[in-house]
Amino acid sequence: MPAEPGKIPAPIRNIRELHAHLQTALEVEHSTIPPYLCALYSIKDGLNLEAAELIRSVVMEEMLHMILVANVLNAIDGKPNLTHAKFVPHYPAYLRHSNRAFVISLEKFSPTSVDTFLKIERPGKAGAPVERGEYATLGQFYQHIKKGLKDVCKANKYFNGKASKQITSEYYYGGGGDPIRVSNVDDACGALDVITDQGEGIRNSITDGDHQIFHQGKELAHYFRFKEIALGRYYTGKDTPKSGPTGTALPVDWNGVYNMRPNPKTGYYPQGTDLWVKSRQFCRAYRDLLARLEDGMNGQPERLIAAVAGMYDLKYKAVALMKTPCDDSGMTAGPSFEYVPPNE
């Protein structure tokens, strides 16, 4: 993490540091996906349709964020890396940019997990400065990167990445807006703005600005989508952060969920047992998926087709684990998202 505890983060001074920050951004964006996926997959088929759709929409946008960051990084000739040993956090973990105010876990869909999601997506106060070392919100982190981009890449210096490495809507679809092709500082800042707007929202509003940028229907920022689930009620077009949701009820059935043991680990099961094997298979599938995504972000966009197939497969593997009792406690196994070396 660029900023050490207790210190105000130093400005980004050179292209190497800028690359490092963007790589961190990639990891931060990714780090929320496994927890969101666990909650999403734990919802039994056909139940909690509304909540599942909201979470799915957030996941789709997190994936878009990864692509946007990769496009910025590729535009300045960086090299997105999704396969190094520390890319996937060891859950439970702190959010990687954060001031360590809370821990994120792999958990089933529950009031607790939704509460964590609210903390992850909490909007920053307008203009709040970076405090005591680390970033209180994602927005602050991206502000820092944007400043770095403007400082380091004056007159679009360093924007000499290959255009073929930009991922566009040919390969990304299914909600959350369109990837932005990045070829200069303005594009880059625009791309990073989409990330913060979708996550935290436009200042003093519940919407995410998608309808301004992508001409789509009005969409809520992530924080407010989770708020709807937590409060069991939809926002209306007239609502504000202060008013809270005043729309129709959003039914939530906290019991319509697989009872996944939190933060599953392959090591919970004796090596070689069926559950151990299945848990490990899941991790290998996840490793392979990340590898294909990395290929896709490094000039082989056609590999993203295999990556999408990998995402579906991952879901089926995760749900199978969540249907399997892990012991006699009434809890089930689950996807552990643990690192597996490339040659296993």
């Binding site: 999408v308 197939a309 579906y312």
Partner: peptide, 11 residues
């Protein structure tokens, strides 16, 4: 059900 994703049938 349990679709395999766009283009998976070519793999």
């Amino acid at each position: 059900a349990k679709q395999q994703g766009y283009g998976a049938w070519g793999l």
